[in-house]
Design a protein around this nucleic acid. Structure first.
Length: 466
DNA sequence: ACGCATTTTCCTGATT
DNA sequence: AAATCAGGAAAATGCG
């Protein structure tokens, strides 16, 4: 019995030394600086059965334990993750734990699932080649996947990324600084940097008995005040993994996932970046939306703010004034010409440019704009009906009168954005949509109370006996 | 193809 | 001071 247990432990845990060796400890500066834009890469073809939402490419990196304890994961993340991740268990029970925790058997289960899910020809995938535990699988680069499975390594690589993306929500507390300072006083560039940090995703060491790898012992070490606004990128070590796709053709950002990672847990190299950046094509911010929350490891290339800057340079739209960027280390076409004052961005919603390729890998559909049951007010109503969201993120103020309050406004926005495959959703935008409901009497104003709304005569289905 | 409905995005200004 | 509210404007998106 004890032997069997030990065997099981051996099978599920990883070699810590090896694990650590895969984590070159970045300096805070390296960590905080915005990464170059991420080439958009499609997600695997379908979300798991019963999943609540579409794709949402997140791969998290290790987070400081000191941070990990300060904030609980957002409800959105937990709920979605539970829904997606736990719903795809199969006979191997492979998704009952974090991929980093998987035994060889669970890895096999995952492979089995992937073969079925993506309709891969089983004879093309030699499971024996993947005789690794989950930790090792997660460490594998795209090239390694391709080596082990020449024709379908890419898909498997993306697939494990997808699974990690789902798994992260179950295991990952939001780091403290993700809730960082409200920053309307920050310069735009510092704000962008802060947003970049906020958008970094983190994976908590998934093995309970595995010591946390404290990569950033002082997670609060980086603050906006530490950053010289005018030197935002002066010491940027732009890092991209070696497999950073040059000149991506797959640009459906709504279905992008985590293209930049070499492995979900590894870091890229500077030289790689230099080689590839010049070939990248960039999309409008709206297009790159997934990337805001689509970051993977530190070697990846989150593209939120960085692409904004790029965008200033290649478009006369979608630019913000008062931004000052110097990207000494960036390729020439990524730099803002000195003295060029970006024009004010055009009003209205930025035009979207969409190109879809690699459709086989694309789950890719954006949440519908207004299909039945998909309206914002219905979504909000359903959150109120759901005991896992009410009262934690939204709650009744007066159940009978239909008055409710957003407890965690940004969490609700996050969830709404997730439903619509729009990671850029904010409470500000959501609330604008809410205000449109006043005219239609779906909502009524509740004066003097912030974050409080009331269902109107045209809103149905919110009453207890309805 | 077109118009409409429903957002989404951004903005300016006001209020809390 | 920051968050929120208000509502205009314009664009995106899906549906009929």
């Amino acid at each position: 019995m004890a032997e069997a247990l030990q065997q099981a432990i051996d099978d599920t845990t990883l070699d810590l030394g090896q694990f650590l060796s895969n984590f070159p400890i970045p300096t805070p500066t390296q960590f905080a600086i915005p990464q170059p834009p991420e080439a958009v890469f499609p997600t695997p073809p379908t979300t798991p059965p019963n999943s609540m939402s579409g794709t949402w490419g997140h791969i998290k990196t290790e987070m400081p334990s000191s941070c990990a304890m300060q904030n609980e994961p957002s409800f959105t993340e937990l709920q979605m993750a539970q829904s997606n991740y736990m719903s795809i268990q199969n006979q191997f029970n492979w998704c009952s734990s974090h991929p980093m925790n998987w035994s060889y058997t669970q890895v096999r289960g995952f492979l089995t699932w992937a073969v079925a899910e993506y309709e891969l020809p089983p004879h093309e995938i030699n499971f024996e080649h993947f005789r690794v535990n989950g930790a090792k699988l997660c460490m594998m680069s795209r090239e390694e996947f391709s080596l082990l499975c020449p024709n379908y390594g890419d898909i498997l690589y993306l697939s494990i990324g997808k699974v990690l993306e789902e798994a992260q929500y179950l295991y990952d507390p939001t780091p403290a600084f993700c809730e960082g300072p409200s920053d309307t006083t920050m310069s735009e560039s510092v704000r962008a940097m802060h947003e970049e940090m906020m958008n970094m995703e983190f994976i908590q060491a998934p093995v309970d008995d595995l010591p946390m790898v404290d990569l950033f012992p002082d997670c609060g070490g980086i603050t906006a005040d530490d950053i010289d606004v005018n030197d935002k990128f002066d010491d940027v070590n732009v890092e991209l993994p070696s497999d950073f796709p040059p000149s991506p053709t797959s640009t459906d950002s709504y279905s992008s996932m985590s293209p930049g990672r070499t492995s979900p847990y590894s870091f890229g190299s500077e030289s790689d970046c230099d080689q590839t950046l010049g070939n990248l094509s960039f999309m409008p911010r709206y297009e790159t939306s997934d990337g805001d929350s689509d970051h993977d490891s530190c070697g990846s290339s989150p593209h939120g703010s960085y692409s904004d800057e790029l965008h200033m340079y290649d478009s006369d739209k979608d630019v913000k004034p008062t931004m000052d960027f110097s990207v000494k280390n960036a390729p020439i076409n990524m730099k803002i010409k000195p003295g060029v004052v970006p024009e004010r961005r055009a009003r209205g919603r930025p035009r979207k440019v969409r190109t879809v390729t690699e459709e086989m890998l694309t789950t890719g559909k954006r949440g519908r704009q207004h299909s039945k049951g998909n309206h914002l007010w219905e979504f909000v109503r359903d959150l109120l009906k759901n005991p896992s969201t009410n009262p934690k993120v939204i709650k009744w103020e007066d159940r009978r009168d239909g008055i409710f309050r957003f407890v965690q406004s940004e969490a609700v926005a996050n969830m709404w954005g997730r439903k619509k495959n729009n990671p850029n959703m904010t409470y500000e935008k959501l609330s604008r949509a809410m205000r449109y409901y006043y005219k239609r009497h779906i909502l009524e104003r509740v004066d003097g109370k912030r974050l409080v709304y009331r269902f109107g005569t045209e809103a149905k289905g919110w009453r207890e006996n309805e």
